[in-house]
């Protein structure tokens, strides 16, 4: 088995184990082992509903981030936009200085409770890593490959689609993977703004000192992150294999 696929499988197994641990019966046993008083936890159905909502919100954010980040990244690497590079790096550093929690908090008075402030935080926090990764990946394409394509009479669009993007693919997938993990984490924080995600039982459990739902939420969030990461790793390994065959 290829090493990339093996990592994906291992990550997926960790995710599956965590997901199993978040099941009410198993989690109740863990909590009892930690010596907490037994209390009511979340049913598996409720957990699944929260996970679905979490995934939908994070997925929407990721799609927005991917379109905006990749698009802007491609624009920034075109000839004639070189002067924008310093600005992009500066804004990227500044955007990282605002943690996701603070982003959610600041969006709250403007957009109200629930999904919208979470989505704004997802986009604002995720776009810069994707943009940076895209620029980096496209710049690592060797100038010789570009010149050869030019000499063969490719148009600019053809060069982008057939040479630059395929060659930059590993870097692009890596950037999206980072963005995905960030999106899952930021969505969990969105529970503070009232979005119903897997972060909700954690926040509620912390507030009323109920360890069982808190642990279930924490395990399920981590499980979701690992499973999504595994899916992305699998995709990356398949993309690479596809390219090697060609």
């Amino acid at each position: 088995m290829r090493p990339g696929l093996r990592t994906a499988l291992a990550t997926g197994l960790v995710g599956a184990a965590l997901a199993a641990m978040s099941h009410p019966a198993v989690a109740a046993w863990i909590v009892a082992a930690l010596g907490e008083a037994p209390r009511r936890g979340l049913s598996a159905e409720r957990l699944l509903a929260l996970a679905t909502h979490h995934l939908a919100l994070a997925g929407t954010g990721l799609a927005l981030v991917a379109v905006l980040g990749l698009g802007l990244g491609i624009l920034a690497t075109r000839a004639g936009a070189a002067s924008l590079r310093g600005g992009i790096d500066g804004i990227a550093a500044a955007a990282q200085a605002v943690p996701p929690v603070v982003m959610v908090a600041l969006a709250l008075p403007i957009l109200g409770f629930g999904g919208p402030p979470t989505l704004l935080a997802l986009v604002a926090y995720g776009i810069m890593p994707v943009l940076r990764g895209t620029v980096g990946a496209l710049e690592s394409v060797s100038p010789e490959a570009r010149e050869a394509a030019q000499a063969m009479g490719f148009t600019r669009l053809q060069i982008l689609l057939r040479v630059e993007l395929p060659l930059a693919m590993p870097g692009l997938v890596d950037a999206l993977r980072t963005a995905l993990v960030l999106a899952i984490a930021t969505t969990a924080v969105g529970a503070l703004a009232g979005a119903s995600t897997l972060g909700t039982p954690i926040v509620a459990g912390l507030q009323n000192q109920n360890v069982l739902p808190m642990l279930q939420g924490a395990l399920a969030t981590a499980a979701l992150a690992f499973l999504c990461d595994a899916a992305m790793l699998m995709l990356a390994s398949l993309a690479l294999a596809d390219r090697a065959r060609r």
Binding site: I202, A218, T221, F226
Partner: peptide, 10 residues
């Protein structure tokens, strides 16, 4: 990979 909220809760 683990979200910070989840790690702190655990």
């Amino acid at each position: 990979v683990i979200p910070a909220v989840a790690l702190l809760g655990a």
